[in-house]
């Protein structure tokens, strides 16, 4: 039998991981809800932003907040670039083609990163304290990203509910044609949404670098998981994605402690598959 303290620790780690996953999933979900396209390469954009913060902080020795700012700006720029260069030319084509175009971007980013920076794992070293409470270690490298992630999500929520642009974005997600008739330009909204989605990828990258080393295939670690969280929560459904992030993170952490890391993911994915059959519209969807 496993010592319960390990399970408690795993559960706590699950909450901390869930906070980061929620940020990733909300960024992707925002884009999906508004533009109706799944960016397969979303976590690969995060990977590029992680390199940005690695180079600014670890290699050039700039302060962390400057590196974070660079990562955020780069994320927003990448989001706009992806939309203008890849998505907008194929907005009208088949859903498969849209999915595959961003899949091509995935191959491109992974290989170009390999070409530029090799496959070495790179880590930013922070000397931050760690607290012990009743035998459970809580390192600041996990607590700080969690806190920032929660704050960022609150800011996103306020942006979407309190500003004119945010309201327009939500309106497009609800009804594209009607919003255009109300005089809001979908093109501008798409661009802003992509920029905000990219910005969140940049932020996620800046937070992930606290705990994970970056390498060109980083996207494979979190990519599939992020799509599944979005679908599990209901594509375009923000509170659903938030809850789903924590559910998946808990499954991965606890099953990971009981069996093995891979089995943690296997169980999480199987839960996802089964939930697709039981609640296809998402965890928090109302029964129709």
């Amino acid at each position: 039998m496993i010592d319960p303290i390990f399970l408690v620790e795993a559960a706590l780690n699950g909450i901390l991981l869930g906070g980061i996953l929620a940020l990733l999933a909300l960024g992707l979900n925002l884009i999906f809800g508004v533009i109706d396209i799944v960016w397969i390469a979303y976590v690969d954009l995060v990977m590029v932003c992680m390199y940005a913060i690695y180079f600014t902080v670890q290699v050039y020795g700039w302060p962390v907040w400057v590196g974070g700012g660079v990562a955020l700006a780069l994320g927003a720029l990448l989001g706009i670039a992806v939309h203008v260069l890849i998505i907008s030319p194929i907005l009208g084509s088949a859903a498969v083609n849209q999915l595959l175009a961003t899949g091509g971007l995935l191959f491109f980013l992974q290989s170009f990163a390999t070409f530029l920076w090799s496959t070495d794992h790179r880590t930013v070293r922070f000397s931050l304290p760690s607290w012990e409470i009743g035998g459970i270690f809580l390192p600041a490298t996990r607590l700080i990203p969690f806190g920032i992630s929660i704050i960022a999500m609150v800011v996103l929520y306020l942006f979407l509910t309190k500003t004119y642009m945010g309201t327009a974005i939500r309106a497009v997600a609800q009804d594209r044609e009607a919003t255009a008739l109300m005089g809001a330009s979908p093109r501008r909204i798409y661009l802003v949404t992509s920029a905000v989605g990219g910005l969140m990828a940049g932020l996620a990258g800046a937070l992930l670098i606290f705990q994970y080393s970056v390498h060109p295939f980083f996207g494979g670690q979190f990519g599939p998981l992020t799509f599944m969280i979005c679908v599990l929560g209901g594509l375009g459904n923000m509170p659903g994605a938030f809850v789903a992030s924590f559910v998946m993170a808990e499954i991965i952490q606890i099953a990971g402690v009981i069996w093995s890391t891979e089995m943690g993911y296997v169980i999480a994915f199987v839960v996802f598959i089964v939930m697709m059959f039981v609640r296809p519209a998402g965890l928090l969807a109302r029964r129709q």
Binding site: V38, A95, L99, P224, F227, M228, V231, L235, W259, S260, E262, M263, Y265, V266, F269, V270, F272, I273, M276, F277, P280
Partner: peptide, 30 residues
């Protein structure tokens, strides 16, 4: 069978199969 019974189509079908592919890969590794 369940995908058809529960009308899992389009994006959703793609993502369910994607998960199945990952499950097989992870089981082989595990």
């Amino acid at each position: 069978y369940p995908c058809s019974r529960f009308q899992v189509v389009g994006h959703y079908f793609g993502l369910v199969t994607l998960a199945v592919g990952e499950v097989v890969r992870l089981l082989i590794i595990a």
